[in-house]
């Protein structure tokens, strides 16, 4: 590679082949980053593009940078991205429907304009061959970089070091939450619930009266309808509730019916069917969104955090 980089006017055919193949992949990766709906997929595409860029660095004689690209970017930064994605909710697929009027057209026009301008601009520059890094990298790329970094750029290096420290401290500060008030005792929580009068009893646990006691199975109320409240709000928001199937409900209804007939009571109307329940659920959600206080939302968030931990 060293010899390859030292060439005077044109690169080797091998590098050309490498460029065209990998370059195509890199562009595809970039497009994927922008166009794929799920953030995780975007991240993977980006990671791929970055690895290809690392290869290009290596091809260009920047051995140190190539390695740093892989270690820092593909390793650390992308890992951080994925970590945050997991925090925020990995299974969310972004809707690609544009909400801002004309934003997409404007963006496309701007991007196209800038692209054309850049490429024409580059095309206008006359490139009469290139020097190659043979001389610069004579004693090895890393020592050469180090000697530059610790002499000519030592001030910038120190400043960037400080910047990194500040960034680390800042990120810690931003994400760290100090609890400013005492934890509420169970008694206080109970009193608060009674005072608010919305949900006096504790929330039902999931899986009650159901065949499964999994977290995503709603509890069944005595009349056989599933209780949305019994499922964690995070799961509800993601739409990950598993329905109690209609067959079970029908069985339950039949049992009720027979009991009623046996005892000579009025006929039980039977549980509602799933479609109706879904409509009810939507109604409930709307009510919550309207009247739901910040408290419950915060509570849900912390709950979710605990869950992810």
């Amino acid at each position: 590679m060293n010899a390859l980089a030292a060439t005077a006017t044109a690169t080797s055919t091998g590098e050309a082949v490498q460029f065209w193949v990998l370059g195509t992949v890199a562009v595809l990766g970039g497009l994927g980053t922008v166009l794929l709906r799920r953030a995780v997929h975007s991240a993977l595409c980006l990671a791929g593009t970055m690895i290809i860029l690392a290869l290009f660095y290596l091809a260009n004689g920047a051995y140190f940078l190539g390695v740093v690209q892989i270690v820092v970017y593909t390793g650390a930064v992308m890992m951080l991205f994925l970590f945050v994605l997991m925090l925020v909710g990995v299974s969310h697929a972004d809707s690609l429907r544009e909400t801002l009027k004309g934003q997409r057209w404007l963006a496309a026009a701007c991007a196209l304009g800038v692209g054309i301008l850049l490429i024409t601009g580059i095309g206008q520059v006359s490139v009469g061959g290139f020097n190659g890094l043979g001389a610069a990298n004579a004693e090895g790329n890393v020592p050469a970089l180090a000697s530059l970094l610790f002499t000519k750029y030592v001030v910038a290096f120190e400043v960037v070091g400080a910047l990194l420290t500040v960034a680390a401290v800042g990120a810690t500060l931003l994400t760290h939450r100090e609890r400013v008030e005492k934890n509420k005792s169970q008694r206080e929580q109970a009193e608060e619930r009674v005072r608010e009068g919305k949900q006096v009893t504790p929330l039902p646990a999931p899986g009650v009266y159901a065949r499964h006691n999994a977290n995503d199975r709603p509890a069944l109320l005595p009349d056989g309808t599933p209780s949305e409240l019994s499922v964690s709000r995070t799961l509800r928001d993601r739409g990950q509730i598993r329905e109690v199937n209609a067959e079970q409900l029908a069985q339950l209804a039949a049992i009720e019916q027979r009991t009623a007939e046996y005892q000579g009571r009025a006929t039980y109307p039977g549980p509602k069917d799933p479609g109706e329940r879904a409509a009810d659920r939507a109604q409930d959600a709307a009510d919550r969104a309207e009247g739901g206080g910040q408290d419950t939302a915060a509570g849900q968030a912390s709950e979710r955090e605990e869950a992810t931990k």
Binding site: A26, V27, G30, L31, T33, V34, T49, E98, Q103, R104, L106, A107, A108, C110, A111, L112, V114, G115, L118, I119
Partner: peptide
Amino acid sequence: LLFTIGAAGVLI
């Protein structure tokens, strides 16, 4: 090219 793609992504 990559820069332009990235910029379009930021906007979209």
